[in-house]
Amino acid sequence: MTRTVEQPGPRQPLRTETSAAVATYVFAVCRGGDPAAVAGLPGQAPGTPVRLLRFGSLEAVVQDVPAAEFDAENLRERLADRAELERCARAHHSVIAAMAGSAPTLPLPLATLYLGDERARVALRADERRFLAVLKRITGRVEWGVKVYARPEAKQEPDRSAEAAGAPGSGAPGSGAAGSGARSGRAYLERVRGARQDRERRQQAGLAAAEAVDRALRGIAVASRRLRTHETTLTGERGVQLLNAAYLVAEGDEHDVAAAVREVRRSPACRSVEVEVTGPWVPYSFVDGSFVDGGEPDARG
C-alpha cells in the first residue's frame, strides 16, 4: 500500500522530448492532383500545409503532423473522444473531398501514418500498381449512398379498439367473471396473432421495397455494395433501416440517380418506406481489394 506513495525505486524512462519530430499523415493517393485544391485546408494539424508527395507516377496527399500527438497511444486516446473523433473524421474527409474535386482520388482510411516522407514514399511505391488499377476503376465515377427506412407506422392502438369491439357481447360490466375471462383470453390471442401477421406483412413489404430501390439503382450503377445497416436504436424515430447501400455511378449521371429515386419513391411498392440519398461521395466503398470489378453487384439481400 505504502508503495503507491512516492518512491524513488526503478527509474521511469524519461520521455524524450519529441515535440520537434514530425510524422507523415497520408490522406489519399491521387493522379495529377492540384496542390492548390488542398493547400488552405487545416487537415489534421492546423498550421502545417496539406501538400502533395510524389511517388512513382502518382501523388499522395500528405501533411506533417506532430509525432508525439500521433503515436499509437495518443491517437487511440484522442480518437476515443467523441468530439475529437468527429473533428479528425471530418478533417480527413474534407481533404479527400477537396482533392477529389481536382483529380481522381483514392481515399485512405483515417490515420495512416509514416515516420517521415521517405518511409511513406517507400510504402506507397510498393503498392503503386494496385493504386493504378483502382484509380482506373473509379476515375470519372462517384459514389451515392442510399438508405431505406421502414416508415414507422402511425401509432394505431389496435389493442384498445379490439377490446372495445369485444365489449358489447359481454353484457354489463361485472357479469359472469369466468365467461368474460375466457373471451378476453381468446380475444387476446387473436390480437397477438393479428399483430404478428401485421408485423410480418410490413416486414415483407419493407424488404420488397428495399429490393425495389436496390434494383432501380443497380440499373444505373456501374457497381453496388451493401453496407452494414445501422442499429435500430440509432435510426430512432426514422424506423428500422432496411437497406444501406453504396452505388458507383458515372460522374454527371446524378440526374439519373435523382430520377431513379424519384420514380421508385412513387411506386406502390415503396409506400411503406422512406428513401434517403446522400452524395456524391468520393468512392470510399469501391477502392478496397474485396470489391470485385465487372459491374455486377457483390451482394443481394
Binding site: V29, H92, P107, P109, T112, L113, Y114, L115, R119
Partner: peptide, 13 residues
C-alpha cells in the same frame, strides 16, 4: 466510410 472503407496500406504507426 473513413473508418471502415478506403484503400488500406500498412502504416508505420
Amino acid at each position: 466510410r473513413v473508418l471502415d472503407k478506403g484503400i488500406v496500406i500498412a502504416g508505420d504507426i
